[in-house]
């Protein structure tokens, strides 16, 4: 049964040192506010799962939250490299980061298997690719009917899924619209789920066949307006491309990154405080 609570309470109740987290949102509805809260609470040794570990995981990795990353594409979309992600893998800074990498099709299939209660997923994947040689979670299986050899990959069953959505009602039913990505599968594959939403409303007014997560598969719902910034929430605000470009400069250097995180995340109380801090800086810069 979903409980409506603060993000601080949701994270402190479910996310512990060593937890296995899946924070999803495929370029849309990325749960930035929740990522910041994990950083503020100082969690360590997390296994972080995400198809596209973009800015949010760059921040968490750079702040030393993660010991292991499971992913399929690690970059700053349309901009370039993730410098904290690369520094962790190439130089073990701030801590060694074990990686387990897959393809998108595989990660999607692994979430589906987890959501379906199956131990592994089957796909026609990795033909001619070196990736399976470096990943013990990827094997093969022979079709009992046709003899075709297919990729078999271990199901994902995270401790906690964290996603952002547009709306929830007061009971905790959640509506996701636009590019829905892999969030439904991530929630159903995980033991617990935290959903931050733009707003909590009296009536969800979900269209028939919409992507709705019933309240009884969600653990906590937290109202965090703007909580996907600098990604976007369809129908609420658009992606802040200039922030994503600016991140390249902020994250390139360890000291600049640490100073930025300290000023805007560690010393702010919550996501609203983070946004105020960014706005103060922007006003100061533009006179």
């Amino acid at each position: 049964m979903a409980e409506i609570t603060t993000l601080r309470n949701a994270i402190s109740s479910l996310v512990h040192d060593g937890s296995i987290l899946a924070m999803e949102g495929f370029t849309h509805l990325i749960p930035f506010a929740a990522g910041h809260e994990v950083i503020r609470q100082g969690r360590k040794s997390l296994t972080l799962i995400r198809m596209t570990p973009d800015l949010i995981y760059d921040q968490m990795i750079g702040m030393g939250c993660a010991s292991r990353l499971v992913f399929s594409w690690g970059g700053n979309p349309g901009v370039g490299s993730l410098h904290r992600f690369r520094d962790a893998i190439q130089n073990s800074w701030p801590a060694p980061l074990a990686i387990e990498e897959h393809s998108h099709a595989d990660m999607a299939a692994r979430y589906q298997a987890g959501a379906s209660g199956l131990p592994f997923a089957v796909l026609r994947g990795y033909v001619g690719s070196d990736i399976p040689q470096y990943n013990a979670s990827i094997s093969s299986v022979t079709c009992p009917f046709t003899g075709e050899v297919l990729a078999a990959t271990r199901a994902l069953t995270p401790d906690v899924a964290i996603i952002h959505a547009q709306k929830a009602d007061r009971k905790g039913n959640v509506l996701i619209q636009g590019i829905t990505g892999i969030q439904k599968e991530a929630v159903l594959a995980s033991k617990k789920a935290i959903v931050t939403v733009e707003e909590i409303v009296d009536h969800l007014d979900a269209p028939m066949n919409a992507c709705v997560l019933p309240f009884w598969v969600v653990t906590y719902v937290c109202e965090v307006p703007g909580g996907a910034f600098p990604s976007y929430a369809h129908g609420y605000y658009s992606r802040d491309n200039s922030f994503c470009k600016a991140w390249d400069g902020i994250a390139r250097d360890r000291a600049t990154f640490m100073a930025w995180m300290h000023e805007h995340v560690l010393t702010t109380e919550d996501f609203a405080g983070f946004k105020r801090s960014l706005n103060r800086e922007a006003e100061a810069q533009h006179g």
Partner: peptide, 18 residues
């Protein structure tokens, strides 16, 4: 321990073969 870590596969392994 690579000299340069690139973003990884994304959708390409299956796009290239399917």
């Amino acid at each position: 321990s690579p000299q340069v870590r690139l973003p990884g596969a994304g959708g390409a392994p299956e796009i290239a073969t399917a």
